[in-house]
């Protein structure tokens, strides 16, 4: 199981609010994520899970509230998010690979341009990462030559190339055919075993139950359950959670 370090909070979220026009999507969310945790965020569609995780690296702009990454307040208007995002990684539902670059180039681009790593070093790192996700022979392939599962694994390697402190996953397997879900989940489990701090929005019960250390249940923009997997799964406090879990299982 996970080795969480309760003395080192990585993300502190304080009264996060998000409105889309008059639609109140996130209602005063507060929670803390610690180093080494693997947090699964679950809930019914439209409950705000994706919006929540996208607010954490401000791809979606919070309407109000504070988010602290380490000891820096990243919701501050004056902060340069490009710098902060270097230490955060995100994996998207529809992969988001750059179609005009090969897999290897996709992985190498950000380290070279953003962290100013030398091309050679980036290439070695890239090869190593592609090997880790099992795709070293696809380094020269373009995204349209890869299957969905392969693309998502390249996307994970790409996010890892920046050596992030935390990885966000926004429904990483929802767009995949069932056969390919397993290969991506295996990679994610590998990351868990390496001690990566992860926040995962997903419906995959196997990952939630076996690999995550903590579960957040988000319904109608509110966190109604927040605790270790075993607790939430076996004895949830709210009716709504029971309802939702019932549908899921």
């Amino acid at each position: 199981m996970q080795q969480t370090d309760p003395s080192e909070p990585i993300l502190r979220i304080i009264e996060l609010e998000k409105f889309f026009g008059s639609l109140h999507v996130l209602k005063s969310l507060s929670t803390t994520i610690y180093k080494g945790e693997v947090v699964s965020v679950i809930g019914p569609s439209g409950g705000g899970k994706s919006t929540f995780i996208r607010c954490l690296n401000r791809i979606e702009e919070p309407t109000s509230g504070q988010i602290y990454f380490g000891d820096r307040e990243i919701t501050d208007r004056h902060i340069n998010m490009s710098e902060i995002r270097r230490d955060m990684g995100m994996v998207f539902q529809n992969f988001g690979l750059f179609p005009h670059l090969t897999a290897q180039e996709n992985v190498m681009l950000a380290p070279v341009k953003v962290r100013k790593v030398s091309r050679r070093e980036a290439q070695e790192d890239g090869e190593r990462l592609l090997k880790r996700v099992g795709l070293e022979d696809k380094a020269e392939s373009y995204p349209d030559q890869l299957s969905g599962g392969q693309q998502q694994r390249v996307a994970i390697a790409r996010a890892l190339a920046m050596k992030p402190k935390v990885l966000f996953f926004d429904e990483p397997t929802s767009a995949l055919d069932p056969e390919m879900v397993r290969e991506v989940l295996d990679v994610m489990v590998g990351l868990v075993e390496d001690g990566m701090t992860m926040i995962v929005v997903s419906h995959e019960m196997s990952f939630i139950k076996e690999a995550s250390s903590r579960v957040l249940v988000l319904v109608d923009g509110e966190i109604i359950e927040d605790g270790p997997v075993s607790e939430v799964m076996s004895g949830p406090k709210h009716e709504r959670t029971k309802e939702f879990l019932g549908k899921l299982l």
């Binding site: 490009s82 950000a110 996010a159």
Partner: peptide, 21 residues
């Protein structure tokens, strides 16, 4: 597709870099 812009930002690339590369 918007996801590419988002993925690029998520990697820490500035708007100018996103446009250029």
């Amino acid at each position: 597709h918007r996801t590419q812009t988002e993925a690029s930002y998520a990697l820490g690339m500035t708007p100018r870099q996103t446009l250029q590369y």
